[in-house]
């Protein structure tokens, strides 16, 4: 893993109508405590608003939280929207995602999926791995 000297910047958002934000807020605090910079967009974000934030904030990673069973529709859309905009930023999905959907999400280009109860070490190491640098010098 390479160091850039800059902290990892993560955009966190709830995509769509679902209001379950407990998990995403906990993840936001976990990542901050691990030294990352978190841009917390909160609820009811769209592909467009996430794209804007990624561009403006120069994000290394996008974290999307989904509890509405819409991940197979919305997950691939955000990945392709980022690609279409020329942004090479990995997408991590967290929330309620059945194992049987993992292959389809991976094929669609989702970088990682974090399930319910993922411990802090796994959350932090997953984000570091997909960011491509660990925030150190």
């Amino acid at each position: 893993m390479v160091g850039t000297g800059l902290p990892i910047r993560v955009v966190l958002a709830k995509l769509g109508l679902d209001g379950h934000d407990r998990g995403l807020k906990v993840v936001a605090r976990m990542l901050r405590d691990a030294g990352m910079e978190v841009v917390y967009l909160g609820l009811r974000q769209t592909t467009g608003s996430i794209l804007n934030a990624v561009e403006q904030e120069d994000a290394d990673v996008v974290g999307i939280s989904m509890h509405n069973a819409g991940h197979l529709t919305l997950g691939p859309r955000i990945v392709s929207a980022l690609a279409d905009a020329g942004l090479d930023v990995p997408v991590v999905i967290g929330g309620i995602v059945p194992d049987v959907d993992l292959a389809e999400l991976e094929a669609a280009g989702v970088a990682a999926v974090l399930g319910p109860g993922a411990p802090v070490d796994e959350v932090v190491s997953t984000v570091r791995a997909v960011a491509g640098h660990d925030g150190s010098d």
Binding site: G16, L17, D18, A69, G70, L72
Partner: peptide, 15 residues
């Protein structure tokens, strides 16, 4: 929101 609202995409009848 109605099922044809832009926000509803991917969420109709799911949860």
């Amino acid at each position: 929101r109605d099922s044809d609202h832009p926000w509803s995409l991917g969420e109709v009848g799911r949860a």
